[in-house]
Amino acid sequence: MSDHVEPIAFIAGPKRVWLYVRQAAAFIAPLVLLLLAWPAIVTIFDVSPRVFPGVQAVLGAAADGLRDGTLLAHVATSLGRVALGTVLAVAAAVPLGVAMGVNSGVSALLTPLFRFFSVLAGIAWIPIATLWFGYGFGAITFVIFNAVFFIVAYNTLLGVSAIPPRLRHAAASLGAGRVAMLTEVLLPGALPNIVTGVRTGLGFAWRGLIAAEMIATDVGLGYMLFVARDFYRTEVIVLGMIIIGIIWLFIDRLLLAPLERATIERWGLVQRT
């Protein structure tokens, strides 16, 4: 009746495309404004390049990095590390979480442990990781693995134990065996929690990665930033920050958030308030 706006998904046809375009434009406009304001501010206030770089310097740094291939190497290394650690962690955490969530006793035993270790997720592992594995690949993968593993396992466990028993009973009385129970009830039922866990865990892992790379390696985005600091090369630092921001925006907003929304809202498992 009133002036409420329909969600875009319910509007059909070319109008829908047009609305998406408008939404995207509205989203980008403030960022473009910021991009325009930046050189103006740097010029007007005569900011020293040792404090904050101009746009040209940053573009120059990007061009240099692209030309000698170092920029791509840093980005690829960082992404590779996150991907490896995350995949390993999810692959280990989900089956474990599902298996544990089925029995209330196992769940009562493991929940406090997983909670404790998810509290430590990420950065707090860096000192011991570097002590155990030395500076480099092993330590960083270990930090990322830890950040994702405990949070995903904890959330999976929560998700499985939150499945109403009547759903399990219903499936059993319809003839579901152990495998079918797992694939048809437990996994889908826990999926929203799993996705939420991955999203939170990746958030910690990404930050942990940047921190670990500052301390523990000689390649990667974090390293790139930290080395640039030694030479007061703010243009490289700002370039790195922008790249970090854009990568995370893509991972979180275009990959994880829609996934989370899709599972949670589509199934109506969580009431949106």
Partner: peptide, 13 residues
């Protein structure tokens, strides 16, 4: 009257 997004026209309430 208000604008109905679905119908793409004004509707009299």
């Amino acid at each position: 009257t208000y604008f109905d997004l679905n119908m793409g026209s004004r509707v009299t309430a």
